[in-house]
Design a protein around this nucleic acid. Structure first.
Lengths: 117, 117
DNA sequence: TCATATACAGAATTATTTTTCGATATACCC
DNA sequence: GGGTATATCGAAAAATAATTCTGTATATGA
């Protein structure tokens, strides 16, 4: 995990929650892992726009934060699996709410900002 | 406003929602404005750790995104007020869920990472 | 032997966000 | 006049996040 020079204010509940999921990929990772545990390569297939490197980095932070579990199988070629933890599970309702909000307002923002590509 | 080189993928509902609130202060701003509309100086008093500059920058983005409304009163000294918009209001359930989650797990993360200062 | 797949990680570079500093303009009060 | 408060903004610096590239190691299959 990146060692912050300006620490997160853990006494603000909102900032605490935000700090755990506010990255480009963490919420997507939680959304993927909620269905089933996955290997890094599978996760990359599910989220092809994320590079393996960034997935690796963010998964490590999520393991440190206790949101995700990592299991290493001592095989060759190496195999490991990431799974959502009970703590991570408690974030799923928030993920769902964001997912639903995004679906409901997608058109608005596509009209406003982007294309429908 | 910063002109992104890598645009947000609006077709991913999760990433869309995240992109609107994933900053150090936006969710806190929404939480403040839900109660009542506020002037910039009041907002700064409510969120003293945020500099006026960063509040200004983020409010502007939120106005652009349609989450917040700005009213300028042509007085001197100048007066302006920011209020949450109907669209912004639809995010409040998510803010609440994050707030509640943070409250419930604050102790855990304070033990894990920080002090109770 | 060579290409492929696997997981992981160091390092440099680029992208983005936040902070810090300072400036503008105006009215009020001492 | 000098201090305060108001809102806003430019520019640069610093902090943080994400990308890109490269390298390790090992097994399998052509």
């Amino acid at each position: 995990m990146y060692k912050r020079k300006i620490p997160v204010d853990l006494s603000c509940p909102l900032r605490l929650t935000i700090s755990l999921i506010d990255s480009k990929w963490k919420s997507c990772i939680l959304d993927e892992l909620r269905h089933t545990s996955m290997r890094p390569s599978q996760l990359h297939k599910a989220l092809p726009e994320a590079t393996p490197r960034v997935l690796d980095l963010q998964l490590k932070e999520m393991v440190d934060d206790g949101l995700v579990t990592k299991t290493i199988y001592p095989e060759l070629p190496p195999r490991s699996e990431y799974a959502i933890s009970p703590l991570g599970m408690t974030l799923i309702p928030i993920i769902d709410a964001m997912l639903q909000w995004g679906e409901e307002h997608q058109e608005l923002f596509e009209k406003k900002y982007g294309n429908l590509a």
